[in-house]
Design a protein around this nucleic acid. Structure first.
Lengths: 194, 194
DNA sequence: CTGACTGTACCAGCCGGTCGGTTGCCGGCG
DNA sequence: CGCCGGCAACCGACCGGCTGGTACAGTCAG
């Protein structure tokens, strides 16, 4: 009846598009209204098909979280490579990663909220991720409180965005990121501090 | 059969205890698992009694949000009175208010998450609150980006706490708040900057 | 033929909300 | 004083729709 995907021999392709669909539903209807039926419809799949790929809602949420965490982690590590050895390398990598992939950061937050709403226990991996970043930031900085504050500020901007309560413009937000990077000792190429 | 309240002539008392119960359920089970039945049990009321006080789940969520918003606003304005006219008065009042009522900040975040999960539209009043604070902070500061960053950092700490992913100790958190206050030009009585 | 995958009918439990009581307090009235 | 009617607060059985999950009969590439 409706068009199908059938692009692949193996199984690798549906799973990602399911996660994308889940993200879209979450963004549209709110984390508390994420249902398997909606996800199935959203990605043009039957519910059975969905549950074949992810045997339960919890598995789906876990996969959402895991994928986004990995994406962000990879982005961050790429930045980190160029900064290794410099002061506040992790913090600066973290900021840069978020600054230039707004989409991932948005998706990640949605996934996090959806997971937390369903079952707070799902946030365990996230917790470990945070602990890891935290200890790296502390270790690399000789101004611990300030570094941690900058880190928190990035998450605050994220919170505003998830809740859709941010009262500032994109330019303001970019300016804040710049201020944060500068405070962290980062001069984002070709810029001079006045 | 079971004990009753019957403390009051009018009607004013149940409503608050219902909101408290709703907050406890949210904290225990996650925002997505907040149900009217659970709230009713939690506050020792029947479902009918609950719905007598708040005619729908949405009304309840709205009331949660409203009460917490008002509490925080009042705390903030009290601090603001002592700072009026000084630079960054709003920002500093905001930080002080949150720093010394952790309970309200925690409850507020839970209420916000619960409301957002159910129906993102409920966040409208919150949005206006944010817009208000934002414009005040901008107006009062001669270092706009920094002031906004500090503000965002406070919300970031809050996010960590809601999600229960904060990897730092209470002392670290207090130290961060102090660093933020200091950056905002606030010297919290009897302290000297080194 | 096979096995990875899909579509659909169905189910049991839960959830928000309704509704017809019941309880206990109060003021009035003879 | 005792009885009555009214009323706010509350109770809990019930309902219909939705949700997560299952069963199973296909479908199609290799």
């Amino acid at each position: 009846m409706n068009q199908k995907k059938r692009l692949v021999p193996g199984r690798p392709n549906s799973r990602d598009s399911i996660l994308d669909a889940a993200l879209r539903v979450t963004a549209r209807d709110g984390a508390g209204n994420l249902t398997l039926d909606k996800v199935a419809v959203e990605c043009g799949l039957s519910k059975g098909g969905l549950l074949y790929n992810y045997p339960s809602k919890e598995a789906l949420l876990q996969a959402m979280l895991e994928r986004l965490l990995n994406q962000h982690l990879q982005l961050m590590e790429e930045e980190y490579e160029t900064l290794k050895g410099q002061p506040d390398a992790t913090l600066r990598a973290f900021l840069r990663a978020w600054r230039h992939d707004e989409q991932i950061s948005m998706d990640a937050s949605l996934a996090i909220i959806a997971a937390a709403a369903q079952n707070p226990g799902l946030l365990q991996p996230l917790k470990e991720h945070f602990r890891d970043i935290y200890s790296r930031i502390c270790r690399e900085s000789d101004n611990r409180e300030q570094a941690l504050m900058i880190w928190a500020a990035a998450d605050g901007l994220l919170l505003h965005r998830i809740m859709d309560v941010a009262p500032y413009s994109h330019e303001d937000k970019a300016a804040m990121f710049d201020a944060m990077l500068r405070l962290a000792g980062d001069v984002p190429e070709g810029e001079t501090v006045a």
